[in-house]
């Protein structure tokens, strides 16, 4: 067991450095930073007219949580494995006296860590702009701490599960990038838009991340109201006097359930990665 942990750590450190210093970090760093800059611009130009909670929450959900976080983590995790296969450097790892599980887990951990850092950069830029920019936010319209902190769940929890999915796809499929793009841009959006009581949302990562955010962003009331209304497929009608807190309990899973779903999702993806990568042959036929 100690040897396994040691080998996994060695794979992690190498992959972490290699991913962090790669050109893709410039690209994804710029994209995530771009999100932070856009939020800052929103605060700067519209911060005195609208509540900053709303200015921050909706764009962050649609751009950051649903696109940037999954895209960054899935891309990093797939490239961590697939590049080794394509470049044939995996040969050196597969001929070392280590278990393949060390390779896949080490790569997953490295992709998680690097994507968390890159995603965190954009998030910190967005949140700090609310704190430091000279925004003329009127009394009671400033970004509330609970809203900004709630979105930190996307930075902390999202990459873990998305990178697990990416690792599985990379270990299992030759066209893992295509599979990853389908997962991020099709499945997550499709399944994540179904009514909460359909149960289909549990097969996504985004729903659990949204749940964690919704549960904690208690000062962003309009945001929560819209999200619960969406999750309830119209059954929650605030104008009829329905209580938001009751609807939250009825239509939105608890934080514990969200964590459990994320843990299951991550665990199953990693297990699938280990199983499908255990005896898989990454050598192609010899050239004639």
């Amino acid at each position: 067991m100690i040897a396994w942990i040691r080998a996994t750590f060695l794979i992690f450190t190498q992959a972490f450095g290699s991913l962090l210093l790669s050109k893709k970090t410039l690209f994804f760093g710029a994209m995530n930073l771009g999100y932070g800059v856009l939020i800052a611009l929103l605060f700067f130009f519209a911060g005195d007219r609208a509540r900053q909670d709303s200015l921050f929450a909706f764009p962050s959900l649609f751009v950051f949580v649903q696109i940037l976080v999954p895209l960054t983590a899935v891309y990093y995790s797939i490239s961590a494995v697939r590049e080794e296969i394509a470049e044939k450097t995996l040969t050196f790892l597969l001929t070392a006296p280590i278990r393949r599980s060390s390779i896949w887990i080490g790569k997953w951990a490295a992709a998680t860590a690097v994507s968390t850092l890159v995603i965190g950069l954009g998030y910190l830029c967005a949140v700090s702009s609310a704190l430091f920019l000279p925004v003329a936010a009127r009394e009671g319209r400033a970004l509330h701490g609970s809203t900004s902190m709630a979105f930190a769940w996307a930075v902390v929890a999202g990459p873990v599960a998305y990178a697990a999915m990416g690792t599985f796809l990379a270990v299992r499929f030759r066209r893992a990038m295509l599979a990853g793009a389908i997962f991020v841009f099709s499945w997550e959006g499709f399944a994540g838009s179904t009514p909460a009581n359909s149960g289909v949302r549990d097969l996504t990562v985004v729903d659990s991340v949204r749940t964690l955010i919704l549960r904690d962003a208690d000062s962003a009331r309009r945001f929560r109201r819209e999200m619960v209304s969406w999750a309830s497929a119209g059954e929650f009608r605030p104008w009829r006097g329905d209580s938001l807190e009751e609807a939250l309990e009825e239509f939105i899973p608890s934080k514990e359930e969200a964590w459990k779903t994320l843990a299951w999702f991550t665990g199953i993806c990693l297990l699938l990665a280990l199983l499908s990568g255990a005896g898989r042959d990454y050598e192609t036929a010899p050239k004639e």
């Binding site: 190498q14 290699s18 470049e87 044939k88 450097t89 040969t91 050196f92 001929t95 070392a96 006296p97 280590i98 278990r99």
Partner: peptide, 18 residues
């Protein structure tokens, strides 16, 4: 058996590294 690979050294024909 990964342990057996401790006794093997291979210099493959691939020219790719980190």
């Amino acid at each position: 058996d990964p342990g057996i690979r401790r006794s093997i050294g291979i210099c493959p024909d691939v020219d790719r590294f980190y």
